[in-house]
Design a binder for these strands. Structure first.
Lengths: 253, 253
DNA sequence: ACGAAGGTTGCAGAAATTGCAACACAGCAG
DNA sequence: CTGCTGTGTTGCAATTTCTGCAACCTTCGT
């Protein structure tokens, strides 16, 4: 909608790949060097871009600060965190908290497994939306037409033989998840990693986040992991209660 | 330098304070509503801004992802991390890694204390630059005129009675730190928290980062913490060696 | 010392952005 | 039910702003 801003912002993901010099930025943007320079200058003034000693540009410090603040504004996270920690203390496995936003599901909090074999994941990184248990819960709560729209647009990569293969299967899975109120991912993303998840709901009953417990087969079997389902659901409900119970700053029905 | 981009980027810190609606954004930017709308749209398309269900805008998810990627590109962090973990395993205290950038010092990595009483800090958040041990190390390495320039511009808040009171004292402290090659913060930020730190140097000998071990008085006395100095320095040197390429990279822990 | 590579600036033309005014839509009061 | 107020949204013409160019400057390597 705004070309200049659009170009400027396109620089950010570009730099996220690694530092680049003026020429490279200009090339990849398809603009003249002087234009790229001025955009970079503006980004620099706002601290989003940093010029390192070899004169190349990379992402700047303010980005961290902004991301941090963005996080703190998600009050689900604040509320949920102690609960997640407690679950981790109980079972020792990796605990995740995720939200849906703009066709993506992302982890916004994580408590690391206390077992030596850990699954890999990163806060802030988009989740494998077609297979992750938390993603199923978050998408299952969307109104039906939206669910369909999202499902149609997705790719369905076959991470493993048990990955969700296509939109049809995905929608059926969502329907099931929606009815039962919890979800699993049994080796759908990584062959040997299983996962159980439960939804966190706001005052209006809408799902605002989802939490999950994940563990590799070498630590516990899928069946053993499923025995944690009551704990996970209880915790999710507790968080829901707190989240919808008190309203810290802004109040709306 | 670029008005449009400048305006657009000004929206980000504004939203960091909390969600805002179109009118508020337009007002605070001093532009017409339609202009603000278009800027927000562009930000939205890049995922930097999210429109929540009540139609207000807040910072978006991509910001997390960008910040994460920015971090991973700091290769000091990659290299240092296993070392930090090892130090934490040895002594149990909070271990930090920090860099200097654009008049700020910020933590880029952290390993949490294994003691129940922990100090508060956040990755990405600017450090109390006048008192933190890591900040002293990073600033002490700047060329003299730059050090002076920075010191003059700083505020010197008295967090505690032992905080650095003014630019003069600060510069003297930096000189000392520079000579001895390590730094401490003994209750200068929080009355009961002490800290020892050592510099990490690149191939050219310049300080590129600093690491520290922090612990509250209730866990160990300042004297006891100081006995960890050799460990900290040894670790920092090991990281320096790997970072500058002198040490062939060995497998991560 | 020279040439090359990359970065920087001034300027005129071109294109994008702006603010306006009108429109849509919701909630609310009468 | 109807008109009102407070939003957010779109089309348009004027004008501001941005762009690309070409020349200039600096640094580095040979």
């Amino acid at each position: 909608m705004s070309q200049t801003v659009d170009r400027a912002l396109s620089i950010l993901p570009l730099l996220a790949e690694g530092p680049a010099d003026l020429g490279q930025v200009a090339d990849r943007l398809g603009v003249h060097k002087s234009t790229a320079l001025r955009l970079l200058r503006t980004l620099h003034e706002h601290g989003l871009v940093y010029r390192q000693s070899d004169q190349r540009y990379r992402l700047g410090a303010r980005l961290f600060a902004l991301a941090q603040e963005a996080m703190e504004n998600l009050d689900v996270r604040e509320i949920a965190h102690p609960h997640l920690v407690r679950v981790n203390e109980d079972c020792g496995h990796t605990v995740h908290l995720a939200v849906y936003e703009e066709n993506e599901v992302l982890y916004i909090d994580k408590v690391e497994s206390r077992y030596p074999v850990r699954m890999y994941s990163r806060i802030g990184k988009p989740v494998a939306i077609t297979v992750a248990a938390v993603a199923k819960l978050l998408l299952a709560d969307l109104p039906e037409h939206e669910r369909r729209a999202v499902a149609e647009k997705l790719d369905f990569p076959m991470y493993t033989s048990r990955s969700t293969p296509n939109a049809g299967a995905f929608l059926r899975e969502l329907e099931k998840v929606r009815e039962q109120g919890w979800a699993t991912d049994l080796g759908g993303h990584e062959e040997s990693v299983n996962c159980v998840a439960a939804p966190i709901r706001g005052a209006d009953g809408r799902v605002v986040a989802a939490m999950s417990v994940s563990a590799p087969n070498v630590v516990v079997t899928a069946d053993e992991l499923l025995t944690l389902l009551p704990l996970v659901r209880r915790t999710a409900d507790a968080i829901s209660g707190e989240y919808s119970g008190r309203t810290p700053l802004k109040g709306t029905a």
